[in-house]
Amino acid sequence: MGERLNWLRAGVLGANDGVVSTAGLVVGVAGATDNRGALLTAGLAGLLAGSMSMAAGEYVSVSTQRDTTKAALALERRELREQPEEELEELTGLLQERGLDREVAREAARQFTERDALRAHASVELGINPDELVNPWHAAWASFLAFTVGALLPLLAIVLPPTAWRLLVTVASVLITLALTGWSSARLGAAAIRPAVVRNVAGGALAMAVTYAVGSLLGAAGV
């Protein structure tokens, strides 16, 4: 259940990144030009660049974490094979640190070792579940899809409405979405909702205001 919540929260945050970064980009371009083709090109470029970057970054990060975990498990497996008594004593000590007295800890360590020594040490000593190593490809695809879904909202909002309504529709839809993703991430993380929503909305509004101002200045200068 906890692992699923972590994935859901990561998906919400990935979508949030897609909304903010793409909204900042297309609103900035909208400050310089109202050409639909230019807005679509900029939005698609931002969507693809952002989603690929998120996927690559997540793949590298999770691969490194997975390799580190596998190395730790391999070391523990070797130590269990080469020095079982020392490992049994180590597990006993760790269980004592968790509140068991010496005799109970020793007996529990012995039973854990007989049942599955590697799993016992991985769980108690390393805090690892050997059956739940994260797949880097799954993480990469999840990040790619989450960012893409988030980025589609400001992209469609800036190119579909009539010229006079583009900016208003985009800003309104983005701020509403940021309020929802802020609320969702707070709920999933068991955090205070109002600060999360305010931070999310304020950050998105600031990003769009800054990029629109820069785009307007560059458009006025004919750059």
Rank of each mutant, 00 (worst) to 15 (best):
V198L: 15
A108Y: 07
R115T: 13
A109D: 12
L168S: 12
R102W: 13
W141K: 10
V134K: 02
A190W: 11
T181G: 00
L118S: 08
S143N: 14
H138S: 12
L178W: 00
W137E: 07
E114Y: 05
D131F: 01
P195E: 10
A105L: 06
V169W: 00
D101R: 07
I193D: 09
A192N: 14
P195C: 03
L168W: 12
S173E: 00
F147M: 07
V104E: 12
L133P: 03
W183A: 07
A117Y: 09
G150R: 06
D131V: 04
L145I: 15
A202K: 10
T113Q: 03
A109F: 10
E103I: 14
T148D: 04
A139S: 15
N129G: 02
L118C: 11
A139L: 12
A164D: 14
V149E: 05
E132T: 09
R187G: 05
N200K: 06
G182Y: 00
L168P: 00
N135R: 12
L178E: 05
A157Y: 02
V198Y: 11
L100M: 14
A146V: 04
G150F: 10
V149G: 03
P162F: 02
L153E: 01
V159E: 06
P195A: 09
L152N: 04
N200Q: 13
A142N: 05
A105N: 06
D116P: 02
L167G: 13
A120S: 10
V124G: 00
L178S: 05
I158H: 02
A190E: 14
V124E: 02
R102H: 15
V104I: 14
L178N: 05
V197G: 09
A151N: 13
L156T: 03
T181K: 02
E103R: 15
R119N: 10
R115A: 14
L175I: 04
W165I: 06
L118Q: 13
A192Q: 13
E114L: 11
A120Q: 00
L156S: 03
L178G: 03
P195Q: 08
R110H: 15
L153T: 04
I193M: 07
A172I: 13
A164W: 09
A140H: 08
A186H: 09
E114G: 15
L168F: 10
V124I: 15
R106S: 07
G189E: 06
I193P: 07
R194T: 12
V171S: 02
A196S: 15
V197I: 15
N129E: 06
I158S: 01
T148E: 05
A179P: 09
A151I: 08
P161Q: 01
R115I: 13
